[in-house]
């Protein structure tokens, strides 16, 4: 494992066995999470971005099968393969409770409606950090203040339903922080929010990430959000990563036809009335039978015969910019030759 990284995912495959057939949700995904940095996983609905991140915490339903490696560097420096742990064992529960925290699109998935905010947040503090009830309560109020909940001393005893949408999102973030996590997985954290609230919550996440030196995985369909929030972007399509690289490079010089198409199809604030946004023809195919070649082949305007037959190998173009596309095979060799 690279000493820079806190998390390395290698050849992750997740399948769901349903009565209708096998859903190939994640189909051989590899990426790194450098310590203290933030990475983004971007893709449209059904691309497997959420499933791949739930796999990191082994939060998959029992009918899912998982293979590949999820290497995680623990606090004491030991490296553990999360993919090998028992899904309900003590070790994974410890990782979930301490090391890898998650925040979700819908806060009510992690907040219980029948307990006060105080009880829910202090539970983790008492359980994993051995605080007394009183200490935990004070720490909870501190955390609520930290995430910008006004009148935290009073609101700490309220129930989630008494909170507005934005406040619930903040409470959920406070709950994630209570564990002193080293990795934060944010799954579409602002998709359900209006723009002004989205901006508030995103800037909060950014502040906290910097302040606590968190390593963050941000999962979203919104390229606008990743553009401002993360250092490395992974673009996913149909269960595979098709391109990965530093945010600036991905946005300035996208290489994969899907990335290019995606970036061009986003309406921008600087658009012009009547201007046509270029779009990607067709729609995302179903994940029941995935193509054996490039997943984007059916919609690609540069497609070649080889694309249907063979999954392209990764081609590294910049120092950290990698693309999985047959258009670029040989380009690496050519560049090496030119350098030589």
């Amino acid at each position: 494992m690279n000493p820079k990284n806190i998390l390395e995912v290698r050849d992750l495959v997740v399948k769901f066995k349903l009565s209708e057939g096998i859903v190939h949700a994640v189909n051989g995904v590899s990426y790194d999470v450098p310590e203290g940095k933030s990475i983004g996983i971007v893709g449209e609905s059904g691309c497997g971005k959420t499933v791949s991140s739930y796999a990191l915490n082994r939060l998959l339903p029992p009918y899912a099968t998982l293979s590949g490696q999820i290497l995680f560097r623990q606090q004491d420096g030991n490296i553990i393969d999360i993919a090998k742990l028992k899904p309900e064992g003590r070790e994974i529960r410890a990782i979930r409770g301490r090391d890898i925290a998650m925040i979700f699109q819908e806060p009510m998935t992690s907040l219980s409606p029948v307990h006060t905010i105080c009880n829910q947040i202090s539970e983790a503090l008492i359980l994993f950090q051995g605080m007394t009830k009183k200490q935990a309560r004070n720490r909870t109020i501190e955390l609520l203040k930290l995430v910008g909940i006004p009148q935290a001393e009073r609101r700490v005893d309220e129930y989630p339903f008494q909170f507005s949408g934005g406040m619930r999102q903040r409470a959920m973030i406070a709950m994630a922080l209570a564990r002193n996590p080293r990795v934060l997985i944010a799954d579409e954290p602002t998709t359900a929010l209006d723009v002004t609230l989205q901006a508030q919550v995103l800037s909060l996440i950014q502040d906290l990430q910097n302040r606590f030196n968190l390593s963050m995985i941000l999962i979203t369909h919104a390229l606008g959000v990743v553009a401002h929030m993360v250092e490395t972007v992974n673009i996913m399509y149909l269960g595979r990563i098709v391109e990965t690289g530093p945010t600036m490079e991905i946005f300035e010089e996208p290489l994969h036809p899907y990335t290019q198409g995606l970036l061009q199809s986003i309406p921008k604030l600087t658009g012009r009335l009547g201007e046509r946004v270029s779009s990607i023809p067709g729609s995302v195919p179903s994940a029941y039978d995935i193509p054996k070649g490039c997943p984007f082949e059916a919609r690609c305007k540069h497609r070649m015969e080889i694309c249907r037959e063979e999954m392209p190998k990764p081609v590294t173009v910049g120092s950290e910019h990698t693309v999985y596309c047959h258009l670029y095979t040989g380009r690496e060799a050519a560049r090496d030759a030119a350098n030589a």
């Binding site: 002004t196 995103l202 553009a227 970036l263 600087t270």
Partner: peptide
């Protein structure tokens, strides 16, 4: 100001976005 444009160089002003709900 709150809309994050899909351009890492574009200005995004989440910090001076209005407070409250």
């Amino acid at each position: 100001g709150a809309v994050p444009d899909a351009n890492p160089k574009a200005s995004w002003r989440p910090h001076d976005v209005v407070k409250g709900e």
